[in-house]
Simulated assay, not measured.
Amino acid sequence: MIPVPLTGVIPPLCTPLTPAGEVDTRSLRALVEHLIGARVHALFALGSTGEAAYLTDARRRTALETVVEAAAGRVPVLAGAIDMTAGRAADQARTAARLGADAVVATAPFYARCHPAETADHFRRVRQAAGVPLVAYDIPAAVHTRLDPEVLLRLAAEGTLSGVKDSSGDDGALRRLLVAVRGRGLHGSFAVLTGSELAADGALLAGAHGLVPGLGNVDPHGFTRLYAHARAGQWEAAAAEQDRLAALFGLAAVGDPAVMGVDSRAYGGFKAALHLLGVIGCPATAAPQVPLDEAAVKAVRGYLEEGGLLP
């Protein structure tokens, strides 16, 4: 099911929850339909936007089972196998593959401080356990380790990694990685995906294979249009769509920073938007994240109206 290289728009799904914190499977199925209806190219369950770090193993399984069943083979499903060390991440990867994931996504080890050689061994162990393609997830803000480009290139050349999702926020480093991927003859087999909502057009212009935007939950049509414009070389149209999406991304920062973390503000904004759009039944985020207050939800509505998603 996974094309080589993986390309296109691959939203990292939110995980709708009930007020009691259980996975809202009905809303999750509706979200899958919302995204597939916008012609996204794949789905990424149990990533950061999916609040995987907050979910018990049982809730992770419920969420992934629901996404796989709802997708029904129409698009590939990637699943986060995110945990602190190789053994734990390998267990997550085995479970994801058993539940029907077409590929798994793993970060570097965290809590344990590892040398790049140990990080490489971590990915090899997770890939062996998964038995399906593995995508590295470079998110130093969360795991406090930046993936070494040479490690990525070596693991790509040996077939351990099928791609990388870059959520580093370092556009210059992403550009250098893309140049190196082409220079090593890996552009046709190793996917470089950007997690940026704000510079997706620039990443595609530089040669990125695809997009993994959290905002894609809210406006998947916008990102599929942007991707189509870029692939057609219509860069002015792509830039105009990017400008609109950049403005819409303001909904991820409406929460009060005096009482909420950056992540809870973003996930709360996405879920409030999906609730206002009628896609999910409840905008709850996982505990102990602080929910958006009434004023913040009103601000989210304003962004949706300005972005043309609500009348």
Rank of each mutant, 00 (worst) to 15 (best):
G255K: 04
R98E: 06
F110K: 11
A287D: 14
A130N: 02
S264C: 14
A93C: 11
A38E: 00
S196L: 08
G172N: 12
E158S: 13
Q289R: 11
L35S: 00
G302C: 11
G80C: 07
D166E: 11
P76R: 03
R154G: 14
R175W: 02
D148K: 12
R124C: 06
K271N: 08
R29W: 04
F110G: 04
G250V: 05
A157M: 01
G172A: 14
D293T: 14
A90N: 04
R29V: 09
S162Q: 13
A90Y: 01
A89W: 03
F110M: 14
P12S: 04
V297C: 04
L178H: 05
R182N: 07
L13T: 04
H275S: 08
Y227N: 00
G183Q: 09
G210K: 02
A252M: 15
T25N: 01
R74A: 09
F249Q: 05
G222Q: 01
A129D: 01
A246N: 09
E197I: 03
L134G: 00
T7Y: 02
A230P: 06
R124F: 08
G281R: 08
A72W: 04
R301T: 07
D170K: 15
L177S: 05
P76D: 06
E197W: 08
G222L: 03
A156V: 12
D102A: 10
A295N: 00
A52K: 05
R127I: 12
P109D: 07
A238D: 08
A191Q: 07
L152E: 02
A103P: 10
A101L: 02
Y267L: 13
V151P: 04
V192M: 12
D83L: 01
V67T: 03
R113F: 14
H275A: 14
L43D: 04
Y227R: 05
A284C: 13
I2G: 08
G47E: 09
H41D: 14
A200Y: 00
D148P: 02
A295Y: 10
V135Y: 07
A208N: 09
E306M: 10
G131K: 14
M260C: 09
L205M: 10
A142M: 11
S189F: 00
A53W: 12
E65I: 03
Y54N: 15
P288K: 08
S167Q: 09
R74V: 07
F223S: 07
P3S: 08
